[in-house]
Amino acid sequence: MNAYKELTLQGLWTNNPALVQLLGLCPLLAVTSTVTNALGLGLATLLVLVGSNVTVSLVRDWVPKEIRIPVFVMVIATFVTVMQLLMNAYVYGLYQSLGIFIPLIVTNCAIIGRAEAYASKNPWQKSAFDGLMMGLGFTLVLVLLGAIREIIGNGTLFDGADLLLGAWASELRIELVQFDYPLLLAILPPGAFIVMGFIIAGKNWFDQRQAERAKTPEKQVTRARVTAQ
C-alpha cells in the first residue's frame, strides 16, 4: 500500500505535472479562464491519462523498445480522438468552449511523460493509479487556476457549469463579487501566466518552509575504506 501512498503524493504534490514538471502548459493556460472549463479539460485529461497509462502498461511487454514512442503516441491519440468524439456528441457546450484544446491533449507532455516514465515500467494497477493521481494533480491545479482567474476576472465561480454538468448545474454559479470593472487581465492569457507563476511560487515557498522545519533525519553512513588496512 505504501507504493500507492507514494504515488498519491507524487501526483498531487511533489511531482505534480503542472506545478513541478510544468508539462501541458499550453492547454493549462489557455482554458482556465473559468472553473468550468478548467474542470472539463482536467477531467478529459485525467480520463485520457488513466486510459493511456493502463493500455501502455498492458502492452508494454509486447512493444519493442525502438517503437515504443510511436506506439504510446498512437495509444494516446486514439484515446483523445475517442474522447473528443464522445464530448462532441454528449457535452456539446463544453466541447465548444474547450474547442481546440481537446485535440491538443495529444501533445500534452504530461501524458506521454507518464507513459514513458511510469506506465512502461510498472504493472497496470499501479499505472492506472499513477494516471489517476497525476491526472487529479493536473486537474486540481487547473481548477485552482481557473477559480482564481474567474474570481479576479469575473467575480464569479462555476460560471457556465451547466455546459459541463447539465442544466441543474446552473444552480452552482456563485456570484462572489460584483465588480464594476473586473480585472480583465486575469481571464486573458497573460493573466494565466501571472497567476500560474504565483501558484508555483507559493508551492515552492511552502515546500521550502516545510524543508526548513523538518529535522534532517539522523542517518548513519558507513564510510568505505578505499584501501586495505
Partner: peptide, 25 residues
C-alpha cells in the same frame, strides 16, 4: 508488424467511435 498492428487496432477503435457518435453530433 507490431507497429502496424497497433495502428490498425487504434484506427478501428476510432472508426467505431466515429460511427457511433455521428448521429448525436
Amino acid at each position: 508488424m507490431v507497429l502496424a498492428l497497433f495502428a490498425i487496432v487504434a484506427t478501428l477503435l476510432i472508426v467505431a467511435t466515429a460511427q457511433f457518435t455521428e448521429e448525436p453530433i
